[in-house]
Every structure is written in C-alpha cells, then in structure tokens.
C-alpha cells in the first residue's frame, strides 16, 4: 500500500497527471496520478489514505519548494493539475461523506473586476491542499458572497481584485460579511492589494501567492 501511495505522492509533486503527460521526461509513458489513484482504490486503499497519505503530501512538498524559491507558480499548477486528475476518482467519497475535506473555501473576483486568472490559480492550489472550493466566478457583489457563506457555514472567503478601482469594493464586502458573520476568515489578494490594505479593511490575511493562502488556511484550522 505504501508503495503506491508514495508513487502517487511523487506524481503529484512532479506534476505527472496521467500516463500521457510528457513531463517529467523520466516518467514518460508511466502511470500518472490519474491511473495510480484508480489502482490504489481498486487495491482496497481507503480513499482517506489516498487523499491524506498520497495526494496531500505531494502538494505539500511542492508547496515547500515554492516557499524556498525552488519552485514557481507553473510547477504548482502542474501539481494542481495532477491532483485534480486524481481527485475526480475521490468525488463520490466526498459526496457520500466517507472522505472529509479540510474545510470550504469560497472564492471570487470582486464586483467590477473580470480578471480571474489569479483567483483560478488560488482555487486550484487550495483545492489541492484538501479544501472544497466554491468558486463564485467574477464580478461578485456582497449579496452573492453572503449567500454562499450562509450555505457553507464555517467557510473561509477569498476575495481577488486586479485593479485599484475594484480593490476598493473589497472594503464594502468585508464589512457586509463581518456584520452578519463576524468569525468568517477573509483572505484577500491581487496585484494592487497589500498587507496594509488588508489590515485597513479588516480582512484576516493577505497573500501575494497561492501557497501563502494555503499555509494560512491550514494554520487557521489547526488553531481553531
């Protein structure tokens, strides 16, 4: 069992999604995260072990490399892609409740802003860390976000903006969330966003990269 989970973990770390993935060259033609996940489940490995001992450690290692400057966003995305390829086999177990996620992360691009590449990347990496992601899309008003917060009690919220003109809409959204759900963790990000702005509007955390968001979410859950 540990061998297949180890290989699964290595595939996620290396960004090897499936047998036809061309990278890394040394694994060309070999099974990727997609096939290994199916094999593990067919061999009777519990879906929780597949997630917690196979997939999540692989993402954690690429995250550590990112933190050390030994890997960059493209490699994180390759790993997230491999993780996603494997996760589709776990979806029935998430749906049945047999496998628990770490938490729910509601994310969106704020009102007035249509840039979603940063938000999409954060969503993939957060999902790869074991969270359920509820992606509300772009140009989101406070009402839509509040609806999602009410539907997913205890969720964390990630707000993204690329423009200084739309970044200011974060303040209103944070205020609205705080008024009705004061304990909700709110993360903010995007090119013009700074730590100072995050503090000024009363959000919990600013991260310039997806890995920072994952580390914060994990530490917040551990502290809860």
């Amino acid at each position: 069992m540990s061998d297949i989970l180890q290989r699964l973990s290595e595939c996620v770390e290396a960004g090897k999604a499936n047998a036809s993935s061309p990278f890394p060259a040394e694994l060309k033609g070999q099974p990727g995260a997609d096939e290994l996940c199916q094999q593990a489940l067919a061999a009777g490995v519990s879906p929780t072990d597949v997630l917690e001992r196979g997939l999540v450690p692989g993402m954690a290692r690429i995250g550590e490399k990112f933190n050390c400057g030994d890997a960059f966003v493209p490699e994180m995305l390759l790993s997230a892609r491999a993780m996603t390829a494997a996760m589709k086999h776990l979806r029935p177990y998430f749906a049945s409740g047999e496998v628990k996620r770490r938490g729910v992360f509601v994310c969106c691009t704020v009102q007035g802003d249509l840039h979603d590449i940063g938000k999409n990347i954060v969503a993939m990496v957060v999902e790869g860390a074991g969270f359920e992601v509820v992606d509300l899309g772009v140009d989101c008003r406070a009402e839509k976000i509040l609806e999602a917060v009410e539907k997913h009690p205890g969720c964390a919220v990630g707000l993204s903006a690329l423009l200084t003109t739309t970044m200011v809409n974060m303040e209103h959204i944070v205020r609205e969330i705080r008024a009705r759900h004061p304990q909700t963790l709110i993360l903010v990000g995007g090119a013009p966003v700074t730590r100072e702005f995050c503090e000024k509007i009363g959000a919990n955390h600013y991260s310039p990269d997806p890995q920072g968001a994952v580390l914060y979410l994990k530490s917040a859950i551990a502290a809860a």
Binding site: V73, P74, L77, R81, I121
Partner: peptide, 8 residues
C-alpha cells in the same frame, strides 16, 4: 483543465 499552459 490545463492551468499550467494557460498561465504561461
């Protein structure tokens, strides 16, 4: 499902 190439 190819965020890697999309990002680049």
């Amino acid at each position: 499902g190819d965020p890697f190439t999309g990002f680049i």
